[in-house]
């Protein structure tokens, strides 16, 4: 049984820490939630392994999260897990709560980040394109929360996401980050909507790596891409009804006013 060092309720969510920790500065909080092509979750899972990130806590709620425990190497974990290494704090979950619960979860996560002295928020997800089947060279974009972040992200050699819709958990997360005037960036890489897309995850990880200044090797992720896709099928199937409920298909539509 995992030892609990500290427990705190933020809103309807119980934050559990297994040990005392605080990320080094400048700190980055990365939030990985299931979304198009499971791009963020696949990337985060690889990052945990590659960087040897330590699991230091978790988040649970009987009201807003599914009735799930995750058993990892014999240890019982809540459905939302917290990992850290140096100045990185990673929030990771393979379970997407119902859309009505996402604002509450997002607010609690950002409150927790503020208490941990987080300086920057990084979101990385997929932006579905209908012709993904044909595309070999995936394009990436970014959305900055302020001009300072814009300057740094522009230096990565990718374009800003200038027109379009973003729907789903990251839309809520980013809106809330803006409202709080946080330094935040969202990396968006072209991906499948309905199939797991490790190639897009690798592209996002390369951008994250340069943005936070930590080397994350994606060679193994690309080599194992087919087996990861095979393994992620069940998760993708479970996530699709939630994405449909949020009207994720709006992301395919060009806006009328540009």
């Amino acid at each position: 049984m995992q030892k609990v060092y500290r427990e705190e309720w933020i809103g309807e969510f119980r934050f559990i820490e297994y040990e005392d920790y605080s990320p080094a500065r400048p700190s980055y909080m990365i939030i990985a939630l299931p979304d198009a092509g499971l791009v963020s979750v696949i990337a985060a899972s690889h990052m945990i392994k590659k960087l040897g990130m330590e699991e230091v806590g978790g988040v649970d709620s009987y009201t807003y999260l599914p009735p799930v425990i995750v058993v990892h190497k014999g240890n019982v974990r809540p459905p939302v897990r917290i990992f850290t290494r140096d100045n990185l704090l990673l929030i990771y979950t393979e379970f997407l709560p119902a859309s009505a619960a996402i604002p509450a979860l997002v607010n609690s996560l950002l409150d927790y980040g503020a208490r941990k002295g987080i300086d920057n928020l990084v979101c990385m997800t997929g932006i579905p394109i209908p012709n993904r089947f044909e595309v070999d060279k995936l394009r990436s974009f970014y959305v900055p929360s302020n001009p300072d972040v814009d300057r740094v992200a522009r230096g990565l050699g990718i374009e800003p996401f200038e027109n379009g819709f973003l729907v789903g958990p990251y839309a809520i997360l980013f809106k809330e980050a803006l409202r709080r005037r946080m330094n935040a960036v969202m990396f968006l890489t072209e991906s499948f909507m309905e199939f797991p897309d490790p190639e897009a995850s690798a592209k996002n990880l390369t951008l994250l790596s340069r943005f936070v200044g930590v080397e994350i090797d994606v060679k193994e992720l690309l080599e194992q891409a087919e087996l990861i896709r095979l393994r992620a099928r069940e998760h993708m199937k479970r996530v699709m009804p939630n994405l449909a409920q949020m009207r994720k298909e709006y992301e395919y539509a060009p806006p009328l006013y540009t």
Binding site: F133, E194, F195, L227, R229
Partner: peptide, 17 residues
């Protein structure tokens, strides 16, 4: 997935590995 493109139906099947 099955898509209706107007003149055609397009089925995509993910068969990794």
């Amino acid at each position: 997935s099955v898509r209706d493109t107007g003149r055609e139906y397009v089925v995509y099947v993910d068969l990794p590995y």
